[in-house]
Nucleic acid binder design. Sequence first.
DNA 1: TCTGGGGTCCTAGGACCC
DNA 2: TCTGGGGTCCTAGGACCC
Length: 453
Amino acid sequence: MNDIFALIDCNNFYVSCERVFNPKLENVPVAVLSNNDGVIIARSNEVKKLGIKMGTPAFKCRDIIEKNNIKIFSSNYVLYGDMSSRVMMTLAQFTDDIEVYSIDEAFLSLKEREDEIAQRFVFDEKNDEKKFKDRAGRIGMETSFALFGREIRKTIKKWTGIPVSVGIARTKTLSKIANELVKKDTEYNGVLDISNLTDKQIDEYLEKISIEDVWGIGFRTAPMLRAHGFYTAKDLKYVDDRWVRKLLHITGLRTVHELRGISCIAFENERKPQQTLASTRSFGRPILSLKELKEAVSTYAIQAAERLREQKLIAPFMNVFIHTNYFNENQARYNNSLGVQFSQPTNDTRVLIKEACRIIDKIYKPGYLYKKAGIILFNLMPETQIQLNLFHAYEQDKKAARLMKAVDKINDQNGRNTILFAAAGIKKPWKMNSRIVSKRYTTRWNEIIEAKI
DNA sequence: TCTGGGGTCCTAGGACCC
DNA sequence: TCTGGGGTCCTAGGACCC
């Protein structure tokens, strides 16, 4: 049986999360900023229309923000993460074949359920006013898959308040494209199924997608392809295989085949174990002193260790880096990093802090204004896979594990930072900016929304 | 003054071995 | 000391994604 995929993608996800709890934000321009209030990472349609691009530094569009009264928010990942899991749980009501691809999108594999959906969702002239209209203006009845997509969309909106778009096609790449078309054109009312179309009909859609909007073609290869005369998804579809293999390698070839309707990017129902874990952050203001730098990396080490333990993972390697501001050309630059292999794989906060500070001692150079630091853990493995080395003190290890477990439990029950590690500092004057953050409406009792009658 | 954070996969090239 | 093919393993860096 042929593959068939539905891509469910939340519209302007972070903005939509803010809107769910603040109806005044409907129909007005809204944008959400990255960590440290640095760049714009989510835009409402109104903001997109104003021409503000994804990733624009906030300070560079201050004028346009003020002039158009754009509502700006710092990112509130606690809220977005919780809203994401609500959306995914709603999707799980429809099928088990879900691949959660990112915080705001998921693929469904429908091939096992083609018959069932065809029976359950039948177009009815009287009740279903929405008729399928394609790019060429042809009118037809909506397919069963499209009606199924509408049902999903309606339910997610009702249960979570989040609007989503649905694209349905024979490959993941084509379902991405169908989804993009939905977002571009309100005529589709949120759902487009191109799974049943002929090659020629699909080409009419592919012509509307410019090459840099194809999933897998990034900002580096797009200009190269344009220079060779390929401008749209359709152009890319008919490129010579050998040429693609040579210039875009195996990943590019897969993309081209996917455009042709040959599914080669696998559906991944089960989450793969994580291989690396990073904890990095820019500072709210530059750091000059060794002491503060150590506080910062200790803070990141604590966070990384917590996340390791949450997933019952241990790490054998760690890398620590520091650097000055890349953007400031008038300032002396310095960047450096150093790795360490632990005597045995660990998720003990104290070990991570100790080693991270030791590395900072080695790579820190006085006189520079540091802007960012971070730690990255590699080759993660399950806790149960630990290989004892020759000098390994097993009892001591069990004790350490119990201690960490107790710390996690206390912080979990009584709020983060109930138990602190002194190494991380208390005041943290360097911590990131987050000036205009909304409430954690769904995860904190004291920040829950109030209804006034 | 102010420019995010966290991931994956692939390739080229070096080191090493037979 | 040089000649040579063929293989594996590891790492750094590039490209991409959201």
